[in-house]
C-alpha cells in the first residue's frame, strides 16, 4: 500500500472567503505578520501497489476537485 496525497486548492484568481475569514480572525486575535491565508482540502488515499498515477489524477480531476474553480496536486509518498 502506498499513501497518495491529493491537495486541492481554489485557483489563484478565485476569491477564497474562508481564507479571508481566517486571516481576519488572526488579525483580531493579535497575530501579526500573516499577510494572506488560502484554505484548501487534503485527501489521503491508501492505494494498492503499483500506484497508477494517471488513474489518481483522473480521480482528482473528476471527483476530488472541481476543476472549474480548483487546482489539485498529487503527491505519491514514499
Amino acid at each position: 500500500m502506498t499513501r497518495v496525497v491529493v491537495d486541492v486548492m481554489l485557483k489563484t484568481e478565485i476569491s477564497d472567503p474562508q481564507g479571508q475569514a481566517v486571516l481576519s480572525a488572526l488579525t483580531k486575535l493579535g497575530h501579526q505578520g500573516v499577510q494572506a491565508v488560502r484554505q484548501g482540502k487534503r485527501f489521503e488515499l491508501e492505494v494498492t501497489d503499483p500506484v497508477d498515477e494517471a488513474a489518481i489524477r483522473q480521480i482528482a480531476d473528476t471527483l476530488l476537485a472541481n476543476p472549474v474553480i480548483e487546482d489539485f496536486s498529487v503527491h505519491v509518498q514514499t
Binding site: 481554489l10 485557483k11 484568481e13 478565485i14 476569491s15 477564497d16 472567503p17 479571508q20 474553480i69
Partner: peptide, 10 residues
C-alpha cells in the same frame, strides 16, 4: 470564463 465565487457573508 473565469468563474466567480460568491461570499454571502460579505
Amino acid at each position: 470564463p473565469s468563474v466567480q465565487v460568491g461570499d454571502p457573508f460579505t
